[in-house]
Amino acid sequence: MQSQDNILKIMNLEIGYPSKKGLNNILFKDINLSGNSGELIALVGKNGIGKSTLLRNITGLQQSIKGEIHFFDKSKEKFSRTEFARMVSFVSTEIVNISNLSVFDLVSLGRFPHTNWFGKLQSDDIVKSTRALEMVGMNDFARKNINEISDGERQRVMIARTLAQDTRIIVLDEPTAFLDLPNKYEIVHLLNKLSKQENKTVIFSTHDLNIAIQEADKIWLMLDDKINEGAPEDLILDETFNKIFEKSNLNFDKVKGDFRMHRKHAEKIGLIGDGIYYNWTKKALERLNFSVDKGNESIQYVKIETGNNSCRWKLTELENKYEFDSIYELSLYLKVQTKF
């Protein structure tokens, strides 16, 4: 059974930069993607592969070379400028930092395609702008200036502006790029919430794969030669995810749902212990290029002794025994050892 409403359908799209000599500089071709309402879509792929260009094509900021982009089963070109602006809104990577511009003024700019030529805000426009600020939890900031708030707050305001624009589709280019970890999670979670509550199609590009996997309904995965779409879980199970960074040492851990560096382990080390202490000690040892062998009391091994409130690490090397109070001290000692 398929239940799709085809809000967005991209067919055989070719993107890039046209050149005058007829030799187009093609970034990516054969793009076939779709988006439905109430969906949060994460666009994922390595740097320079064409994520921003694809988003600029979808939002009409750039002309595509070949192929079709359909909204509501109608070609993009058939919409007028204003019709299009009432359907698709955009947040770019550009940081908007204008002194003396209030948060409310910025958000109400989103009413641009709805107001008359003079830009006069009717009561309906004010209500919609206020509600947009409420939806992103920024209603207390309405009178503040846009350059007086934090990066995370500004990103919320930029999202509120798209909500004021009242479009079915919202496109965001790396909305989490400049944010700290809690803000990254909160912004993507907010986007998820908005896509469900307001039944919007929200498309965003990101490098934060962990967050995308957790929150997105669908992932558009740009690989070197093709673009795949599917639920994040589908892409993990069919191994597509592993292909993103094929050429690097990064591997996708299917069980943990996490990327990790592929290391070439030089020396073996035994590790005895259990629980959370075991896991974190193992991570530290692997960082030092040891291949960790559980329970092995061979030539070189670490034993973790947990007490009530303390924990000690006992290292045995042949006849010698050392004790450490922290993983850091242990690693300092091992670093010196491995150097010589």
Binding site: T59, G60, L61, R81, T82, F84, A85, R86, V88, S89, F90, S92, E94, V96, I98, L101, D105, L106, L109, G110, F112, P113, G119, Q165
Partner: peptide, 16 residues
């Protein structure tokens, strides 16, 4: 006012 946020944003809001 729309130009304040740059031509890209202005265009995405329907400005000619």
């Amino acid at each position: 006012n729309a130009m304040l946020v740059g031509e890209n944003y202005a265009k995405s809001m329907g400005l000619n």
